[in-house]
Design a protein around this nucleic acid. Sequence first.
DNA 1: GATGAATGAGGTTTCATTCAT
DNA 2: TATGAATGAAACCTCATTCAT
Lengths: 188, 188, 188, 188
Amino acid sequence: MARLRSPQKRQAILDAAALEIDATGLGASTARIAKRAAVAEGTLFTYFANKETLLNELYLDIKIELYRLLNSGPSANGTLKERTRHIWTTFLDWAIEFPEKRKVSLQLNMSDLITPETRERVASYSGTVAQTLTELGQQGASRGLPISFASSVLAAMQEVATDFIARQPADRQRLSDLAFEAFWKAVD
Amino acid sequence: MARLRSPQKRQAILDAAALEIDATGLGASTARIAKRAAVAEGTLFTYFANKETLLNELYLDIKIELYRLLNSGPSANGTLKERTRHIWTTFLDWAIEFPEKRKVSLQLNMSDLITPETRERVASYSGTVAQTLTELGQQGASRGLPISFASSVLAAMQEVATDFIARQPADRQRLSDLAFEAFWKAVD
Amino acid sequence: MARLRSPQKRQAILDAAALEIDATGLGASTARIAKRAAVAEGTLFTYFANKETLLNELYLDIKIELYRLLNSGPSANGTLKERTRHIWTTFLDWAIEFPEKRKVSLQLNMSDLITPETRERVASYSGTVAQTLTELGQQGASRGLPISFASSVLAAMQEVATDFIARQPADRQRLSDLAFEAFWKAVD
Amino acid sequence: MARLRSPQKRQAILDAAALEIDATGLGASTARIAKRAAVAEGTLFTYFANKETLLNELYLDIKIELYRLLNSGPSANGTLKERTRHIWTTFLDWAIEFPEKRKVSLQLNMSDLITPETRERVASYSGTVAQTLTELGQQGASRGLPISFASSVLAAMQEVATDFIARQPADRQRLSDLAFEAFWKAVD
DNA sequence: GATGAATGAGGTTTCATTCAT
DNA sequence: TATGAATGAAACCTCATTCAT
């Protein structure tokens, strides 16, 4: 048997890519990513066929991690508001802890690089969160609006809240609470 | 920089840049931008010192145009809700009419290319809109939140609404109305 | 007006390509070709869109020059044998004088790089030579063989003769004469 | 080099190399050759010290096989024409049956990769064919020409005939006969 | 001022070869 | 011996910018 492909090395490349893209944008060079991951330039391409694939895998990796967090905890139990609140809090915790992942995810999402196939793969990891978001879209206030409208508003307001908390970390709890209540009034 | 020969040529380059960036991202080459603007590659650099400057000027140009629209109409009169509604509608009209400008503005805003100076210059064009947004941030529901929170929520929900209208243009009026009311509940 | 693209520079690149390919094969790098032509690496690509195009243009360039030589002189006059003999001699002179062009032409012809379009363009330069070769293919000895058979034999024997003359340059005239007579017996 | 484990594996690599070079030229990568041979990338280098060695061995392998065929059959008996005709037919059969080997052999022969040592080793396998070719070169028509001239013409015309037969396989026998007679007139 | 050819650094990717397993 | 991950030089090509015309 030859050397095995190392999951750690793969992850190191993904992590390096996130940091590098955070620092310099989607134009971040594969050479710099490899260097930051402490592998040779060519090694990157034994783990990812090309840069586009690397970026898609990075997006998937980030989203899977986020969904795993969102789907943990007291999932199916609780009222809709409680479950939505859990999503809200979990997302904010993640976004504050890993600002580079959040930023990279947004940039990749906005770019034309993410393939429909990757989006499908991402969706397959949504788990019980999807059910909560669907319920959210069927509430009274969303009458006449597409089902996914409420979850889009949730995502948008999470981003807003994250931005403000990042600027005023000391007020984290209060900002999170107030922003969530504002959100809830919009969709309830 | 001396006074420039042809304002039309300058604007042609900015317009071409917006279209090209919309099509291929911030990595759009100056050569392609020049070609689309029907000027020589070198000419671009007589109007803009370098690519970064071009992108900053493009951002400024887009924002100025948007602010000009937002500040037109029955500005100071009317209730806060009416004035906010005017902003909402005007933005959506603009975003639907010029999707490439909206997209480019978002991409530039998220990138690290826009300098603090540019942001200041942008702010200097905000006009009476700023007053309305300030009032919005001082309303009851925003108690305890930063003043700019409400306007950030406004911007975020405008984006969400634009996305949904872009996908269902036939429902434009209804989606706009319902989304605005949802927004208003959040901040009122 | 800006600087004009220089035909000399273009030709310098083609010449450098021929020498470089002669020395190291079709894998000759564009960097080395550019260096030998005394232009920057990037300059090569302002004259030729890519390496494949460069090689096709090189093939065309070589063939055009050869056809120009073959079509000069007392073309339409003389017997078929005299005209064929003119082709024979002219080719040998060229092949001995420019061995690298001959070799590169053979290598390119054998590779899969030359497009049908290039071959058509080459054919359009064949001029009166084509008429002579056609007549050659219609002679008695070629009965039952494709028309182009005789000209293929001519080309093949020219190559053989060139090889021997290259190894025994002192016997040039005699080898050429004897080889031509051998050829003529084959097709007459 | 010690005795090699598996002659089959060695031959599989050589066969794969021929096919791969036929498909993509001398630039064919060792990785693809190994893959086609169903061995690991590194294994290729346990059988051949490096790529250049592999190509030399491939050339030798092809030539040995061809000489083995040419030297089979009613070798020493028969007239010179009959023996030459045997070479002619045998070569054509081989070239039509293994077009990729013929093409690769030509490409390698023209490249600068084949060492003098390899050419010597090839020559050592020529067997009784060498005698026939020598006799051919001593015939009347070749007076004044190098001894090897006739055999070079033979090889050249075999190539021409092969090309035409490849394009008109239905006329194989007739084309072969006529072309051989044309050849014979040249050297007899 | 306008042009676009010229530049060479830097981008992505391939590749022959090595070497840990 | 066999494997295939690891390597980094080198390949082709793009690009922002300069500058001769």
